[in-house]
């Protein structure tokens, strides 16, 4: 199970990759999360242009047996949604940090990132 060092993590098992500008985050669920869920068969995401606040629901991910809500790690505006997941939800399992990404968020306040977990902290939390 991998947890890349260059990502931020949340206790709700999401990851964030911050781009060079420091103002945009790509968000998905972690390797641990996809492994716990099993086969992901459906990903339902809020649309582009939606404003989200930290801890609000920005979508749901469904495995064969379960429905899980996705919580925005930080506040911002959704500027891009991974439409590929509509027809290929299994990318969340096969490439959670790459093609399985879910949304790109324009951050409201980069300071919010300070409250997120580093890879080592997340790894410790999930006991992996």
């Amino acid at each position: 199970m991998t947890f890349p060092d260059d990502l931020y993590y949340t206790k709700d098992h999401e990851w964030l990759r911050i781009d060079e500008s420091g103002e945009m985050a790509t968000i998905g669920i972690t390797d641990f999360a996809q492994s716990e869920l099993g086969d992901v068969v459906f990903v339902d995401l809020e649309g582009e242009g939606t404003d989200v606040t930290a801890e609000s629901v920005f979508g749901t991910v469904e495995a064969v047996k379960t429905v899980s809500e996705l919580f925005a790690p930080v506040s911002g505006s959704i500027i891009s949604v991974n439409d590929t997941l509509e027809s290929n939800p299994e990318l969340v399992n096969t490439d959670p940090y790459g093609e399985g990404w879910m949304i790109k968020l324009q951050l409201d306040d980069a300071e919010e990132l300070n409250s997120l977990l580093k890879a080592a902290e997340y790894r410790e939390m999930v006991g992996a």
Binding site: G38, D39, V41, A63, V64, K65
Partner: peptide, 20 residues
């Protein structure tokens, strides 16, 4: 197997994956 309690038993929910 991934185990889960069911009706008082520890039951295998899945081995390689439900879809497989």
């Amino acid at each position: 197997a991934r185990m889960m309690p069911f009706a008082g038993f520890d039951m295998p929910v899945q081995y390689s994956g439900i879809i497989d």
